[in-house]
Each structure stands twice: as C-alpha cells, then as structure tokens.
Simulated assay, not measured.
Amino acid sequence: MAGLYFAFDISVMPGLARGDDHTYVTAMRNINEAIDNGLFGLLFLGAFLATGVAATQQQRRGRPDAARWGWLAFALYGLSLIVTAIVNIPLNNQLARAGADATAARTRFGGRWTTGNAVRTLACTAALAALGRALTLHGRASA
C-alpha cells in the first residue's frame, strides 16, 4: 500500500494537476471506479489482517521484541485505514456525486485528498519499516 499511495503522491496527482478541471475530475472518477474492486479490497484489508496475525504469532512464540514492531506496524497501517475512511473515501464519494461544475468539484476535492494520501503514504511507509524490523528480529530469534 505504501507503494500505491506513493505513486499517487509523485505521479498521478501531480500529473492530473497539470490538466484542466474537467479532465482532472473525470480521471479521478475513473480511477476511483477502477480501484473499487474485490481484488483491491482483499489486498487493502488483507495486509492489515496479515500484519495483526503476524504480530500475534510473534507474541505467542515468545518473541516480544518482534511482536512490538509487528503491533506498531499494525497500528500504523490501521491509521492509514482510518484516514482512508474519514478523508479519502468521503471525498471520492463527493466527487462521484458532484455536478457539472468541475472547477468547484476539484477545489473541494484536490487539496484535502492529496493531504490525506500523503498521511497514508507516511503511515504505510513507517509500517513497512516496522515490519522490516520485526522480520529482522524474527530472523535473529530463529537463528
């Protein structure tokens, strides 16, 4: 998820920002419709659940240091889910229902969505780093 969000930060949103309002709104609507599918949902929630399962397993196997890093990753990814639920999805829904005034729709959407996405990117990147640390500790405990 960190990679997906980062791609939006450095390419998708800056690329869309170069276009006119109608193109921006139409493209974002199309992106939002395309990404709203079962496979994405499975990966989106599956990563969160797998992180929690991994942290639980580390805890049960007596690896408290690895478990702590796993729980940190779980919390950070959870933060990204919360931001998605309270910022990005509501904005996506507003954009989908917006009328013909593309300028107004873009104005209400763009800055807030991009800021929310940057928070998601940071949270998921930090979660990935925490998972890397947990994996390192797991490997040391196993050796």
Rank of each mutant, 00 (worst) to 15 (best):
I31H: 00
A50T: 12
D65Y: 10
A55N: 08
N92Q: 02
I31Y: 04
N88F: 03
R29M: 14
A73R: 00
A105K: 01
N93V: 13
D21N: 09
F48T: 03
F48S: 02
T23Y: 01
Q57L: 10
E33L: 02
Q57S: 00
R68S: 12
W69G: 11
G46Q: 10
G62V: 01
L91C: 11
W71E: 06
L91A: 04
V25S: 10
L39P: 06
A55K: 05
I86L: 04
L91D: 01
G46S: 13
T56S: 09
R106T: 00
E33D: 05
Q94T: 10
N30E: 15
L79I: 15
M28L: 13
R68A: 14
T84N: 13
N30F: 15
D36R: 15
Y77E: 05
A104K: 03
G111H: 00
A100T: 07
A50F: 14
G46V: 14
R63L: 14
L45P: 11
T56N: 07
Q57A: 08
F74G: 03
L42F: 03
A98L: 05
L91P: 02
L91E: 03
T51S: 10
P90N: 14
I86R: 05
D20Q: 08
R97M: 12
A47H: 10
N88K: 02
Y24K: 01
Q94A: 12
G19D: 06
L76D: 02
V87P: 03
T115Q: 07
A118Y: 08
A96D: 14
W71Y: 12
N92A: 00
V25P: 06
D36A: 15
R18T: 15
G78W: 08
N92I: 00
A105F: 02
R29V: 13
